[in-house]
């Protein structure tokens, strides 16, 4: 990203320049699925008796967290594989996973805030899960800072892999914190909610909620991160090739 690669290094292999057919299909499917998911969330699912229409934001709120979870998980796999094999493609996967995960966890935070305003009567509260989710975002922002602070490209990838693996601990904390801190007001979706959770709802209580959640979970947790990571990996490959070409041009 920073230093230009060595000029005698072989050029990174280029992908087919019009996007590969599978990626095009996946992109189209994802866009259609987002539309369908929105229809399920905004139209099909019944209105929550207690919370009204605001509850519908939940169909994107929770799945986007799991999308971030899977993207960060991909970054861990990329990091481990990079340290083992030292192939650049794994580092590219890790970087793509973290950037996509960061975007999705911001979606998660913002939708949560919009929901909390009418339900908890505040945009932000220092609830354990909110705090740990915010810290999770900051950890991955720190990852990008660390990455940009290293000039040596080989060392940059190595350190990024190490930090990407360590940073996943904040994701796990965010996931389990409502089970170990009983004073949270954040509702749990699977299993019983904490005692003082505010704004809980039953999956079975309203018609269509389960179906809408299932569809949106597939869309936001799997399809969206998958598509975005793929595009980001392609973009990074192009960037690296351009850098290599530039270095070669400057050399001659």
């Amino acid at each position: 990203m920073t230093a230009l690669p060595r000029t005698d290094a072989p050029l990174p292999a280029i992908e087919t320049r019009p996007a590969p057919r599978r990626l095009t299909i996946l992109t189209v499917v994802t866009i259609l699925a987002i539309a369908f998911g929105l229809y399920m969330a905004l139209g099909y699912a019944g209105t929550d008796v207690e919370q009204g229409n605001v509850q519908r934001i939940f169909y994107i709120h929770m799945p986007s967290f799991f999308g971030a979870f899977f993207a960060f998980g991909a970054a861990v796999i990329g990091g481990i594989q990079y340290l083992r094999t030292r192939q650049d493609k794994w580092d590219t996967l890790a970087l793509a996973g973290i950037e996509v995960g960061l975007a999705l966890s911001l979606v998660n935070l913002v939708t949560g805030m919009i929901w909390a305003r009418p339900i908890w009567n505040t945009w932000w509260t220092w609830d354990p899960r909110l705090t740990s989710a915010a810290i999770m975002v900051l950890t991955y922002a720190a990852y990008l800072m660390l990455r940009n602070g290293i000039e040596n490209p080989e060392r940059q990838k190595r350190f990024a892999a190490v930090y990407g693996i360590l940073a996943f601990s904040t994701v796990i904390i965010t996931l389990v914190i409502i089970r170990i801190r009983p004073d949270t007001i954040h509702p749990a979706v699977i299993g019983p909610s904490p005692q003082n959770a505010q704004g809980t709802f039953e999956l079975q209580a309203t018609a269509g909620v389960g179906a809408a959640l299932g569809i949106n979970f597939i869309v936001w947790s799997i399809l969206v991160p998958w598509t975005l990571v793929w595009h980001r990996v392609r973009l990074e490959n192009f960037t690296q090739r351009i850098n290599a070409l530039k270095a070669r041009l400057l050399d001659t």
Binding site: I135, T139, A142, M145, G149, L166, A167, S169
Partner: peptide, 15 residues
């Protein structure tokens, strides 16, 4: 790294 001392609290505290 380039930023050295400033970077440690940023990367360490969340972890």
């Amino acid at each position: 790294t380039r930023a050295r001392e400033t970077l440690l609290p940023i990367v360490m505290l969340p972890v």
